[in-house]
């Protein structure tokens, strides 16, 4: 490959993806492991304030955990919530593992959990927000043509936490947090050229892989 081609490929790589820095932390409170057909459920924490865990984030985690060389049997969120209605709706769901014993005393709850063989429940809480943005870009369109000129940027911060509850022991098993930060750019050189950082995606991958290690153990 000539020097010119190498520079071109490097430039294209820089253009299509921005830099993301991420950090994963784990706190364990109990030993974990999945035996036989035991399953796990991933739930996005919903609240009635401005922010809630995006559905796309929990779907991303489910996609990663259900595939790969150590797949985990996952119960779909909607199926789990329907089978335990009305106890896992946004305003009725338990907020801490301490409430599990009270919940399991409700008629039919223990039976439903036993039937679906769900061992662990992971609550995903967090969101991706824009923490800074600036620059300017203007686009014009006329009968003679058009184009965009200028440059804008936005910095995103993805911060998520997974709280893992053991439904057999009715206790908290631990927490994993994932933080990722990245700045995206949009450069207007007649054609708008995006240079996108995806901190949400980085946080998802980091959290999902750590969650798998946490639940089934390191290889």
């Amino acid at each position: 490959m000539t020097e010119g081609k190498i520079v071109s490929v490097f430039s294209i790589c820089l253009l299509v993806s921005g830099c993301v820095s991420s950090r994963i932390e784990e706190s364990r409170e109990a030993l974990t492991g999945l035996v036989g057909d035991e399953a796990m459920v991933i739930l996005g924490r919903a609240s009635y304030n401005d922010h809630e865990t995006e559905e796309s984030f929990t779907e991303c985690i489910v996609d990663i955990l259900a595939k790969g060389d150590r797949p985990i049997r996952l119960i779909p969120e909607s199926e789990f919530k329907d089978s335990l209605y009305p106890w896992f709706e946004p305003r009725t769901a338990p907020t801490s593992a301490d409430e599990l014993s009270r919940l399991f005393a409700q008629p039919g709850v223990q039976n439903q959990i036993d039937q679906s063989n769900v061992r662990y429940l992971a609550w995903i809480d967090g969101d991706t927000i824009i923490v800074d943005q600036g620059g300017s870009m203007s686009c014009t369109l006329s009968t003679f043509g058009g184009g965009c000129f200028g440059m804008s940027y936005w910095e995103q911060d993805a911060s998520y936490e997974a709280s893992i509850w053991d439904l057999q022991n009715l206790s908290a098993a631990g927490q994993i947090s994932a933080d990722a930060n990245g700045t995206s750019y949009l450069a207007g050189l007649v054609v708008p050229i995006p240079i996108l950082a995806r901190p949400g995606n980085a946080a998802c991958k980091g959290l999902a892989n750590q969650l798998r290690d946490f639940v089934v153990g390191d290889e």
Partner: peptide, 9 residues
């Protein structure tokens, strides 16, 4: 949507 059966007494 679905029609879940409530688990209540």
């Amino acid at each position: 949507g679905s029609l879940p059966t409530p688990l209540v007494s």
